[in-house]
């Protein structure tokens, strides 16, 4: 029997200086949870967000960064020839916040 994820995971982010702090995720599916950091729309890092409820950009180079919390949404295990999921994907579970260094 394949897994079916129901409901919508949600979390709220706030910025304190160079640190982003999240609430607990409601309706948490328990799958991979990531801090996704971008700069000018380009990916900078994806970091496991299960280890704590904050992420620090203290060591980042000066600039403006966008941070969002993402969770893996499993629909099925179908993949293309390159091994990429064709349906399952990461989705945002928070609003994006901006951190200026």
């Amino acid at each position: 029997m394949d897994q079916k994820f129901e409901g919508t995971p949600k979390a709220t982010l706030r910025v304190e200086g160079r640190t982003v702090i999240r609430t607990a995720v409601t309706n948490d599916w328990g799958s991979q949870l990531l801090w996704k950091i971008t700069r000018g729309g380009e990916p900078v890092a994806s970091v496991n967000a299960r280890l704590g409820e904050s992420y620090s950009l203290a060591d980042a180079a000066p600039g403006q960064y966008e941070v969002v919390l993402q969770i893996f949404k499993y629909e099925n295990y179908a993949k293309d020839a390159a091994g990429k999921y064709t349906v399952s994907k990461f989705i945002d579970v928070s609003d994006k916040v901006t951190v200026t260094i």
Binding site: Q3, F5, P9, A24, V25, T26, N27, W29, G30, S31
Partner: peptide
């Protein structure tokens, strides 16, 4: 609800 979230809203 927080307890159910802590275990993960999945079959396992």
């Amino acid at each position: 609800e927080t307890t159910r979230d802590r275990y993960g809203r999945n079959t396992l």
